[in-house]
Amino acid sequence: MKAREIAGQNIKNLPDEEVLAISLVSPSAFEILVDRYQSAFLRKAGGIVKREDDAQDTVQETFVKIYLNAKKFKKEKAGDSFKNWAYKILINCAISRYGKLKKEMLALKPLDLSDSGEKALNLSADYAERENLETKIDNKNFVSGILEKLPDAFSAILKKYFFGGKSHKEIAAEDGISAGAAKLRLFRAKKAFKKAAEELGKRPLVI
């Protein structure tokens, strides 16, 4: 059966709400909603979090939440549309990510701009993210212990990202995979790391 057909019926032109319902029994149908909203979501998220990478991560997180909460969507009255519901999730994700990024940047030690020059002003959120990991975890032994518990693919990409300072694009080129695949693997790896750390009794991590 093709991804966009169920029982011989082509569903790519069905309303969003029906496609969402179908995706619960045929997950591949969810691709239709991704195709419909991805570009618009990226523009909306970009207006809030500003950076392209953060906007992409926000949109990815949004689609994950939409799918995981699909059963909760109900069209009970006029105005209850998938679009409105989905945008609420997107905006909440974007605002949450922006708040975390802002806190991470404020947590950095003051920089001596007289020595660092203009390069200091270009400090990226990715650097802040890696710094945040080190400040929130007691020691490197703890980090190593968590990484050992993760699947090899997750452990390897986190070592390159956090400790090697590599972007998802650099990791993609090194591993011979697409940038999108590297970004998705990194997203899943960070989720797995956070869950494993919290299960060991540490306070929730923002990574």
Score class of each variant (00 low, 15 high):
Y37D: 04
Y37H: 12
Y37G: 05
Y37S: 04
Q38F: 13
Q38R: 15
Q38C: 08
Q38H: 15
S39V: 06
S39E: 14
A40Y: 01
A40N: 08
F41I: 07
F41D: 03
L42T: 11
L42M: 14
L42I: 15
K44M: 05
K44W: 00
A45K: 11
A45I: 10
A45F: 09
G46N: 02
I48P: 02
I48W: 08
I48A: 04
V49G: 00
V49I: 07
K50L: 10
R51P: 00
E52N: 05
E52W: 01
E52S: 10
D53M: 11
D53S: 03
D54E: 15
A55M: 12
A55C: 14
D57H: 08
D57I: 05
D57F: 05
D57M: 03
D57E: 10
T58W: 04
T58V: 13
Q60T: 10
Q60C: 11
Q60P: 00
E61F: 06
T62V: 09
T62Y: 04
T62H: 07
F63K: 00
F63T: 00
V64S: 08
I66L: 15
I66M: 13
Y67D: 03
L68P: 00
L68S: 11
L68W: 00
A70V: 10
A70Y: 04
K71N: 08
K72I: 11
K72W: 09
K72Y: 06
K75H: 11
K75E: 10
E76V: 15
K77N: 15
K77I: 14
K77C: 15
D80C: 05
D80T: 01
S81N: 11
K83W: 03
K83A: 09
K83C: 07
N84Q: 10
N84T: 11
N84W: 01
W85Y: 07
A86S: 12
A86N: 02
A86T: 02
Y87K: 05
Y87S: 07
K88E: 12
K88A: 15
K88H: 13
K88D: 11
I89W: 01
L90P: 15
I91W: 03
I91L: 02
I91C: 07
I91D: 01
N92K: 03
N92P: 03
C93L: 01
C93N: 05
C93R: 01
A94L: 03
A94V: 05
I95A: 02
S96E: 10
R97F: 06
R97V: 01
R97N: 08
R97M: 09
Y98E: 06
Y98S: 02
G99S: 06
K100P: 01
K100S: 09
L101D: 02
L101P: 00
K102M: 10
K102N: 12
K102L: 13
K103C: 12
K103E: 14
E104T: 09
L106T: 03
L106E: 15
L106Y: 03
L106D: 06
L106S: 06
L106N: 09
L108S: 14
L108W: 05
L108C: 12
K109S: 14
K109N: 14
P110I: 06
P110R: 14
L111P: 01
D112P: 09
L113M: 14
S114Y: 08
S116R: 08
G117I: 07
